[in-house]
Deep mutational scan, measured.
Amino acid sequence: VGDQVLEIVPSNEEQIKNLLQLEAQEHLQLDFWKSPTTPGETAHVRVPFVNVQAVKVFLESQGIAYSIMIED
């Protein structure tokens, strides 16, 4: 199991704000291929294997929908 690319769908401005804060966490080494800008629009982010669980827990705790787009 390696890195994953998640497709994330924020449903409101609050969730977009939370994702932008997540993007700013440099220690997570997230690679946003497509940043969140509009509710209902997908964002794509590559998550290093060591941080996959932490990111998924965060998304679930914020009620942000996501799916695994690419499993490496």
Results as ranks from 00 to 15, higher is better:
Val1Tyr: 13
Gly2Tyr: 12
Gly2His: 11
Gly2Lys: 10
Asp3Lys: 07
Asp3Glu: 07
Asp3Ser: 15
Asp3Ala: 14
Asp3Pro: 07
Asp3Trp: 13
Gln4Asn: 04
Gln4Leu: 13
Gln4Pro: 10
Val5Ser: 06
Leu6Asp: 00
Leu6Gln: 01
Leu6Cys: 01
Glu7Asn: 08
Glu7Met: 13
Glu7Pro: 00
Ile8Phe: 04
Pro10Val: 09
Pro10Arg: 00
Ser11Gln: 13
Asn12Asp: 13
Asn12Ser: 15
Glu13Ser: 09
Glu13Asn: 10
Glu13Gly: 08
Glu13Pro: 09
Glu14Thr: 10
Glu14Ser: 10
Gln15Ala: 05
Gln15Met: 04
Ile16Gly: 01
Ile16Glu: 01
Lys17Arg: 14
Lys17Thr: 08
Lys17Ser: 09
Asn18Cys: 08
Asn18Leu: 15
Asn18Arg: 12
Leu19Ala: 01
Leu19Met: 04
Leu20Asp: 03
Leu20His: 11
Gln21Trp: 15
Gln21Tyr: 14
Gln21Ile: 13
Leu22Ala: 03
Glu23Thr: 15
Ala24His: 09
Gln25Gly: 05
Gln25Arg: 08
His27Arg: 07
His27Asp: 11
His27Ile: 05
Leu28Asp: 02
Gln29Asn: 13
Leu30Thr: 03
Leu30Ser: 03
Leu30Gly: 02
Leu30Ile: 11
Leu30Asn: 01
Asp31Arg: 08
Asp31Lys: 13
Asp31Ser: 08
Asp31Thr: 09
Phe32Leu: 02
Trp33Glu: 09
Lys34Arg: 06
Lys34Glu: 07
Pro36Val: 10
Thr37Leu: 06
Thr37Cys: 04
Thr38Gln: 10
Thr38Phe: 13
Thr38Gly: 07
Pro39Ser: 05
Gly40Pro: 02
Glu41Asp: 09
Glu41Met: 10
Glu41Leu: 07
Glu41Ile: 08
Thr42Tyr: 08
Thr42Glu: 04
Thr42Trp: 03
Ala43Arg: 02
Ala43Gln: 04
His44Leu: 15
His44Ser: 07
Val45Met: 09
Val45Gly: 01
Val45Arg: 00
Arg46Thr: 06
Arg46Gly: 03
Arg46Trp: 08
Val47Gly: 01
Val47Phe: 01
Val47Thr: 01
Pro48His: 04
Phe49Arg: 06
Phe49Ser: 14
Val50Lys: 11
Val50Gly: 09
Asn51Ala: 11
Val52Met: 10
Val52Pro: 00
Val52Ile: 13
Val55Ile: 09
Lys56Tyr: 09
Lys56Cys: 07
Lys56Ser: 04
Val57Trp: 14
Val57His: 12
Phe58Glu: 03
Phe58Trp: 15
Glu60Ile: 06
Glu60Asn: 06
Ser61Thr: 12
Gln62Ala: 13
Gln62Val: 11
Gly63Phe: 05
Ile64Pro: 00
Ile64Cys: 01
Ile64Tyr: 04
Ile64Asn: 00
Ala65Cys: 06
Tyr66Ser: 01
Ser67Gly: 06
Ile68Lys: 03
Ile70Trp: 12
Glu71Pro: 13
Asp72Phe: 15
Asp72His: 14
Asp72Gly: 09
Asp72Val: 15
